[in-house]
């Protein structure tokens, strides 16, 4: 029950902000020779350490630019931290910007297979769940239309339906609870709630304190890349709210 499924160990993520963008070889050579290649270092995350136990639902709080999304991307494996180590156990499903992996010229049906493969599903698994995905997305006949003709709501509905078809061990949510119209939003909220009920571990980023309170039992607070508080959701929210009123 209290197995650690995610441990973030002294993680730091450094970005080089080029003071001037160097994009081509000529510029690079000239700047290199003149010793003008200056980078401003920027630590989006610095020395962040925390652990998540199985079944915990952790809200990640912080103002804009605190490093929340960077942290999620590190956990999802998209970014590799500059220092420190992240260990995860089990299947991670990241619900970050839905439908970003779609090919515009492909139809919805073809994209189900492509996006599914990208998330690491097997062919037989997708075939088995295909109908369920189509049904949940409510796309109907539009499933055979190229995605370039989809509205943004349709795209994220399809993305959401594909990503949530598995039963993940760790679910990463980056403010995706606002998918599609009011009707679909209700449905997606219900789906996520049902996943949470199955003892899934959740990492949840939101600016809405009510949502965090509703879903999470634990929380961490980030400020300019540093971890300032972690613990029970109510305690952390109290700290967060006092920080906001300070400003």
């Amino acid at each position: 029950m209290s197995k650690t499924v995610l441990s973030v160990d002294h993680v730091g993520m450094k970005f080089n902000l080029a003071s001037e963008k160097v994009d081509d070889l000529k510029d690079y050579v000239i700047k290199f020779l003149k010793r003008q290649l200056m980078y401003k270092e920027f630590w989006a995350l610095k020395d962040v350490t925390f652990e998540v136990k199985k079944g915990d639902r952790v809200g990640i709080l912080g103002l804009n630019g605190a490093g929340k999304s960077t942290l999620l991307k590190c956990v999802a494996g998209v970014l590799k931290p500059t220092e420190g180590k992240i260990t995860t156990k089990g299947v991670i499903v990241p619900l970050l910007e839905l439908g970003a992996g779609f090919d515009k010229q492909y139809t919805g049906a073809e994209n189900i297979y492509l996006y599914g493969a990208m998330l690491g599903y097997s062919k037989s698994f997708i075939e088995e769940k295909y109908k369920e995905i189509v049904k949940f997305s409510e796309l109907g006949d539009f499933i055979n239309v190229p995605v370039k003709n989809y509205s943004s709501g349709m795209k994220s509905r399809l993305g959401f339906s594909i990503a949530t078809i598995v039963e993940p061990d760790i679910l990463i949510l980056d403010e995706v609870l606002s998918v599609g119209d009011a009707k679909f939003r209700k449905k997606s909220e219900k789906k996520i709630k049902s996943m949470i009920d199955k003892n899934v571990t959740v990492l949840f980023v939101s600016h809405s304190i009510d949502q965090v309170r509703d879903i999470c039992n634990k929380a961490i607070l980030l400020e300019q890349g540093h971890l300032v508080a972690s613990g029970d959701v109510e305690d952390v929210i109290a700290i967060y709210e006092s920080k906001i009123s300070e400003n």
Partner: peptide, 8 residues
């Protein structure tokens, strides 16, 4: 687009 969103 994909590299930024999904680990592959």
């Amino acid at each position: 687009g994909m590299i930024k969103k999904v680990y592959v």
